[in-house]
Amino acid sequence: NQASVVANQLIPINTALTLAMMRSEVVTPVGIPAEDIPRLVSMQVNRAVPLGTTLMPDMVKGYA
C-alpha cells in the first residue's frame, strides 16, 4: 500500500510546509505520495489543513 502525506498538526492557510508538519501514513483515499515530502518543504497550503488530514495535490500551491 502506498503511504500518503498526512498533516501532523493544524496547518493554517498560506503556511509554508516544514518536515515537522507532515508524516507518512497509509490512508484511503490516497493523497500526495510520502516520497514527495522533501519536495513539499517550503510549499504553501492554500487552505487550513486540520491535524490528521491527508494532503491532496490541490491543497498545496504549485504542487499539482
Rank of each mutant, 00 (worst) to 15 (best):
1 N>D: 15
2 Q>S: 09
2 Q>A: 11
2 Q>F: 11
3 A>S: 12
3 A>P: 10
3 A>R: 05
3 A>V: 09
4 S>Q: 02
4 S>Y: 08
4 S>C: 04
5 V>K: 00
5 V>C: 04
5 V>T: 09
5 V>A: 14
5 V>D: 01
6 V>K: 04
6 V>I: 12
7 A>P: 02
7 A>Y: 01
8 N>R: 11
8 N>V: 12
8 N>M: 10
8 N>H: 08
9 Q>W: 15
9 Q>I: 13
9 Q>T: 15
10 L>V: 09
10 L>A: 08
10 L>D: 15
10 L>G: 14
11 I>V: 14
11 I>G: 00
11 I>H: 00
12 P>M: 11
12 P>W: 11
12 P>C: 11
13 I>N: 07
13 I>E: 14
14 N>Q: 11
14 N>W: 11
14 N>C: 08
15 T>R: 06
15 T>Y: 15
15 T>S: 08
15 T>H: 11
16 A>P: 14
16 A>D: 07
16 A>C: 10
16 A>I: 12
16 A>W: 12
16 A>V: 15
17 L>K: 00
17 L>C: 02
17 L>I: 11
17 L>N: 00
17 L>Q: 01
17 L>D: 01
17 L>R: 00
18 T>C: 03
18 T>R: 11
18 T>K: 07
18 T>E: 04
18 T>F: 04
18 T>N: 05
19 L>V: 07
19 L>M: 13
20 A>L: 13
20 A>T: 12
20 A>C: 13
21 M>Q: 04
21 M>F: 12
21 M>A: 05
21 M>N: 05
22 M>D: 00
22 M>H: 00
22 M>I: 09
22 M>G: 00
22 M>Y: 02
22 M>T: 02
23 R>H: 04
23 R>Q: 04
24 S>P: 10
24 S>F: 09
24 S>K: 08
24 S>V: 09
24 S>H: 15
25 E>C: 05
25 E>Q: 08
25 E>F: 08
25 E>L: 06
26 V>Q: 08
26 V>K: 03
26 V>C: 09
26 V>D: 15
27 V>N: 04
27 V>F: 02
27 V>P: 02
27 V>C: 04
28 T>V: 12
28 T>Q: 09
28 T>S: 14
28 T>E: 15
29 P>Q: 06
29 P>I: 10
29 P>A: 05
29 P>C: 15
29 P>F: 08
30 V>M: 13
30 V>Y: 13
30 V>C: 03
31 G>T: 01
31 G>Q: 02
31 G>E: 01
32 I>P: 00
32 I>L: 05
32 I>E: 00
32 I>R: 00
33 P>A: 08
33 P>K: 07
33 P>Y: 14
33 P>C: 04
34 A>D: 15
34 A>C: 05
34 A>Q: 07
34 A>R: 03
34 A>N: 06
35 E>G: 09
35 E>C: 15
35 E>I: 08
36 D>K: 04
36 D>T: 12
36 D>S: 07
36 D>C: 07
37 I>C: 03
37 I>L: 10
37 I>D: 00
37 I>H: 03
38 P>Y: 09
38 P>I: 09
39 R>G: 11
39 R>A: 08
39 R>I: 13
39 R>S: 07
40 L>S: 00
41 V>Q: 15
41 V>K: 11
41 V>F: 13
41 V>L: 15
42 S>F: 13
42 S>V: 05
42 S>A: 11
42 S>I: 03
43 M>L: 11
44 Q>F: 14
44 Q>H: 12
44 Q>T: 13
45 V>T: 11
45 V>P: 03
45 V>D: 01
46 N>Y: 12
46 N>K: 13
47 R>E: 07
47 R>S: 10
47 R>P: 02
47 R>M: 11
47 R>V: 12
47 R>N: 08
48 A>E: 14
48 A>D: 09
48 A>C: 06
48 A>Y: 13
49 V>G: 01
49 V>E: 01
49 V>P: 01
49 V>Q: 02
50 P>S: 13
50 P>Q: 14
50 P>L: 15
50 P>K: 09
51 L>K: 06
51 L>Y: 10
51 L>S: 12
52 G>A: 10
52 G>Y: 06
52 G>Q: 05
53 T>W: 15
53 T>V: 10
53 T>Y: 13
53 T>P: 01
53 T>I: 10
54 T>P: 06
54 T>E: 02
54 T>W: 02
54 T>R: 04
54 T>N: 02
55 L>V: 08
55 L>Q: 01
55 L>G: 00
55 L>Y: 00
55 L>H: 00
55 L>A: 01
56 M>Q: 11
56 M>W: 06
56 M>S: 13
56 M>P: 02
56 M>E: 07
57 P>Y: 14
57 P>T: 12
57 P>H: 09
57 P>C: 15
57 P>M: 10
58 D>I: 13
58 D>R: 07
58 D>Y: 11
59 M>N: 05
59 M>H: 12
59 M>Q: 08
59 M>R: 03
60 V>H: 00
60 V>L: 07
60 V>D: 01
61 K>Q: 08
61 K>F: 08
61 K>H: 09
61 K>A: 13
61 K>R: 15
61 K>V: 11
62 G>N: 11
62 G>F: 15
63 Y>N: 04
63 Y>I: 04
63 Y>C: 03
63 Y>R: 03
63 Y>M: 05
64 A>E: 07
64 A>H: 14
64 A>K: 10
64 A>Q: 12
